[in-house]
């Protein structure tokens, strides 16, 4: 009897504290939340944001509307996230480009212009060639680039985009002039890969999930992955370090951020919800199906990571001549 009563009372007490906590802090969220994506519908960032949005919606019991604010290589969307009111009702998905755009003078925004919440995903760059090409390893390829500067062209994103920096940084780390493999700008990885298969170019240094369908179709071969360890998607593809000895790594990452000045209680509540969904089977299944890498970094680490990412990329951009 007493045991039951005590448990009952303890439950009541816990209920009261929760209720009290609820009234002390505004009961965020009490209306729909907008999740801004700086990239178009159909891409990997959009897909990741949409699964997070729908799981967050279940977790927070409020609609989470995923909104694509595209254009300007991500400038428009990142700007929209930064200039929203820091009330927790507009959050966004920042991508690796936030550490690149400010070097080019396109915007003043950097990672520190936001309240970081959590890093959720990172996909390292791969090194893809046509399946019937004669390059069997990353070393073959680098030697060929070195021997015929200007002959082997690469593509997979816009001029100065993330994959452009991936190969430029790789070549630089191996003491080869980054201009030895000229960059052919393309509107994303898919057109670049198509051009690779069509024989227009020789190298596409995009991420493995982007190249996946053509690798599986036997049209494209991946020679290396620019990461510390092989990818779960293709464990047989060696790391760049193993293939060439270079320490260069680069990944396109995605994380949830909010406008600067988000109240601590809101950001804690959001972080808790994200952490929970990040551990959920639905999220992990989805990311596994799509072949996307799952990562987790809480706010402080995420902020430091953005800072480092920006500095690394800036160094390569200077070497390539995008930053003068």
């Amino acid at each position: 009897m007493t045991a039951i009563k005590r448990r009952h009372l303890a439950g009541l007490a816990a209920g009261f504290t929760l209720a009290a906590a609820g009234t002390a802090h505004a009961a965020w969220p009490e209306r729909p939340i907008t999740l801004i994506v700086p990239w178009g519908a159909g891409g990997g960032t959009d897909a990741t944001a949409r699964i997070i949005g729908s799981l967050l919606e279940k977790e927070l019991k409020q609609p989470v509307n995923v909104v694509n604010r595209t254009g300007g290589s991500g400038v428009v969307g990142h700007q929209a996230i930064a200039s929203a009111a820091p009330d927790g009702y507009t959050i966004g998905m920042a991508t690796v480009e936030i550490g690149m755009m400010h070097w080019q003078g396109l915007t003043a925004l950097k990672g520190s212009s936001y309240t970081p919440i959590a890093l959720v995903n990172a996909d390292p760059a791969g090194l893809q060639v046509r399946a019937d090409s004669s390059y069997k390893s990353a070393k073959d390829l680098v030697d060929a680039i070195k021997a015929n500067p200007g002959k082997l062209k690469s593509s997979g994103t816009g001029q100065g985009g993330i994959w452009h920096l991936a190969i430029a940084g790789m070549l630089r780390s191996l003491s080869v002039d980054p201009a030895a493999s000229p960059w052919v700008p393309s509107n994303g990885a898919a057109p670049g890969l198509q051009d690779l298969v069509a024989g227009g170019i020789e190298i596409v240094p995009c991420s493995l999930p982007e190249a996946r369908s053509l690798i599986d179709a036997g049209k494209v071969r991946s020679l290396a992955v620019m990461d510390a360890k092989p990818a779960a998607l293709y464990p047989n593809v060696p790391t760049l370090k193993a293939a060439t000895g270079s320490d260069w790594t680069l990944a396109a990452w995605r994380g949830i951020v909010a406008p600067k000045g988000l109240p601590k209680d809101v950001s804690d509540r959001l972080l808790a919800a994200l952490e929970k969904l990040h551990k959920s089977a639905e999220f992990n299944d989805f990311m596994k199906q799509r072949g996307f890498g799952v990562t987790w970094m809480p706010p402080v680490e995420f902020a430091a990571f953005m800072e480092k990412s920006s500095n690394d990329l800036g160094a390569v951009m200077k070497a390539v001549g995008i930053v003068k």
């Binding site: 001029q159 201009a179 000229p182 700008p185 390539v320 001549g321 995008i322």
Partner: peptide
């Protein structure tokens, strides 16, 4: 006239 060329082109 003020627009830059693509590096290397």
């Amino acid at each position: 006239r003020t627009f830059p060329v693509i590096p290397g082109q």
